[in-house]
């Protein structure tokens, strides 16, 4: 699993690639929380996520909750089918703000 952090017009985008599992999710969690410490707008790009487990989903939920406490913007973008399957089983597809692609997510108001 790797991740890449970039900025699109003032929105921080973290793009995850590969398997987000018990081994890699602690690093993902740390990265997302650090971004929220520094930035007010965060988008997680799940387009290249081949697998995400409950611990990976837990990292996303935690980041989502921190962002709400701080009135920061938090959204998911271009969620891969594998990741979408888990999110919908966990009924989180209705909880997260999800955009079709990163640019739409970065441009969205919130």
């Amino acid at each position: 699993m790797t991740f890449e952090v970039k900025d699109i017009n003032g929105t921080t985008v973290v793009a995850l690639t590969g398997d987000v599992d018990l081994q890699s999710s602690p690093a993902v969690r740390q990265q997302l929380l650090e971004c929220l410490d520094k930035h007010k707008r965060l988008v997680v790009d799940l387009g290249a996520v081949s697998y995400i487990d409950s611990s990976g989903v837990a990292s996303l939920v935690e980041a989502f909750q921190v962002s709400r406490k701080r009135a920061a913007y938090f959204a998911l973008a271009s969620v891969s089918p594998a990741a979408m399957r888990v999110l919908s089983l966990a009924r989180l597809d209705k909880v997260f703000t999800i955009h079709a692609d990163v640019n739409a997510a970065a441009a969205a108001q919130g």
Partner: peptide, 18 residues
């Protein structure tokens, strides 16, 4: 309870669901 949004505790729900 799956309606309770919080990190953790999802594993058993996922196993049972699929």
């Amino acid at each position: 309870d799956i309606n309770d949004v919080r990190p953790g505790g999802l594993g058993v729900h996922l196993i049972k669901s699929v």
